[in-house]
Amino acid sequence: MKIGVLALQGAVSEHVDMLTACGVTARPVKEQPDLTGLDGLVIPGGESTTMRKLLVREQLLSPIKTLVQQGFPIFGTCAGLVLLAQPESLDGLNGTVVRNGFGRQRESFETALTVKGWSKPYHGIFIRAPYLSEVKQPAEALVTLADGQIVAAQQKNVLVTSFHPELTSDPRFHQYFIDQMVAKRSDQVN
């Protein structure tokens, strides 16, 4: 199984390390040809404004948007969530995104999260993080904070988190993406 990590800017190596630890092959994606032969794609944390500009400049925005529409498994963290939820970017999740929703870097925080369907809490690391103020069908909230902000969600083949699983040593989100989304899709296709 081969999973790409968009490598235009941001926390690329952290995702590569986490995917490798989960036993899959991780490959950096910098240009269009890098997308061929992949089973899934991760869009890492970074600066969403910068990443969007580079996606357009490298002519990667429409090919990835097409993949999203075709049901290709994609996992976006932080900036990845912003890009996947913006209709003008990758348009992969039916929801309203609030960028830098918790404030500036001074307000960045860590907290324990309750994930829908998981028995043990997950440690969330939020850095100038966005959140979703609402999600609509077919998108579903996976983690909602006490104040109502949605910080993890899934819409079929698209998984997003406001926080950074790649900065923890807990592989559950990556494992979920691999087992429940990438592996199942590969079974259907083959």
């Binding site: 926390a11 690329v12 970074g46 307000e107 860590e110 907290t111 324990a112 939020f126």
Partner: peptide, 21 residues
């Protein structure tokens, strides 16, 4: 409980800047 100003979020902010100008 939200914990702000931790080593992880401070260093993490710089990690998110990687590969950038």
């Amino acid at each position: 409980m939200k914990e702000t100003g931790t080593t992880t979020v401070k260093r993490g902010m710089a990690q998110m800047q990687r590969g950038g100008v």
